[in-house]
């Protein structure tokens, strides 16, 4: 009896009696989850329907016949060939490079006493709180004066700058917790700080680095405002810029518009679904401790 109960009851930890409050809670959470998923289901279904079917079928009716052309046509019209490559190049250079320089700085701040470590930490932390949206115009001015508008470095350098604060903050907290005696022992053995960083600190912080890597991948992939200002030439556009322009031009072709949305969102979603665990740890290790 209890075995059957434990398998069928929604609350495996409470095999003996079902708590009505918990059952009510579970049902309401499931209903809210369905509402939360509804927009995604709607978009995905629309992406697979032909235009007449979009206009005539019910919102949540699955497509009668999947129209794959929506995706191929949207890919061509939306110039996804170029935007996809640009997003990939920018993300794959920015994310590892940013993490490396942040980790180096965090190590120095946490393990090498220089007298002004605390000041530097507050200085860099400050940047995590400032909205870069207020600086779009001066950022354009700066990048323009370096003749880097419409280039990869022109957008990667500002991305690096705005990624540093949060990552240094998190990694500093982590490196600080590693006892100084370990570093001192290695120094006496003749190792340099660079070696200690590379051979000891990087390997032990792999889980944190993985979490930050995933978070930063999604943030970089999704970034829109800076790219809008710094990438004016449409051959240099990233996926979010391409999607925005697609919406402006082909908003009456519902199937293709939704196909474009799905294709833009899919890479980040896949990364999220695979590495879910890391998202939570990456986010919470910074904001909420203990």
């Amino acid at each position: 009896m209890t075995i059957v109960d434990a398998q069928t009851a929604p609350f495996s930890s409470l095999p003996k009696r079902r708590d009505p409050v918990l059952i009510g809670l579970w049902i309401s959470l499931v209903i809210v989850a369905i509402i939360w998923l509804a927009p995604i289901v709607f978009i995905t279904f629309t992406a697979m329907k032909s235009n007449p079917e979009v206009l005539n079928s019910a919102a949540f009716a699955p497509p009668e016949k999947i129209v794959w052309e929506n995706f191929t046509k949207a890919w061509v019209k939306g110039n996804f060939n170029e935007t996809f490559v640009n997003s990939t190049v920018i993300t794959f250079i920015k994310v590892p490079l940013g993490l490396l320089i942040s980790a180096m700085a965090a190590y120095a701040l946490a393990q090498i006493q220089m007298g002004w470590n605390k000041f530097l930490l507050i200085f860099v932390l400050f940047g995590a709180m400032i909205p870069f949206q207020v600086m779009l115009a001066p950022l354009f001015t700066l990048v323009n004066s370096l003749s880097l508008i419409d280039t990869y470095p022109g957008v990667i350098l500002p991305y690096l700058a705005f990624g540093v604060p949060y990552q240094v903050f998190i990694l500093h907290g982590f490196f600080k917790a590693i006892p100084k005696e370990l570093t001192e022992a290695a120094l006496i053995d003749g190792a340099s700080h660079v070696t200690i960083f590379r051979r000891i600190f990087l390997p032990v912080s792999l889980p944190v680095l993985a979490a930050l890597l995933i978070l930063d991948f999604v943030a970089t992939w999704n970034e829109f405002a800076m790219a809008l200002v710094l990438l004016q030439d449409k051959h240099m556009w990233t996926l979010p810029l391409g999607l925005m322009s697609f919406q402006g031009q082909f908003s009456d072709n519902y199937g293709q518009l939704n196909a474009a949305i799905v294709m833009t969102v899919l890479p980040a979603t896949i990364v999220y679904l695979i590495f879910q665990r890391y998202f939570v740890s990456g986010l919470t290790s910074g904001a909420v401790k203990g």
């Binding site: 530097l120 600086m135 950022l139 700066l142 540093v164 604060p165």
Partner: peptide, 17 residues
């Protein structure tokens, strides 16, 4: 160790500010 991160941060985040 500090210069890459602080250099890019100062130039592209603090200077625009």
């Amino acid at each position: 160790l500090l210069i890459p991160a602080f250099g890019v941060y100062t130039l592209f985040a603090i200077w625009p500010l």
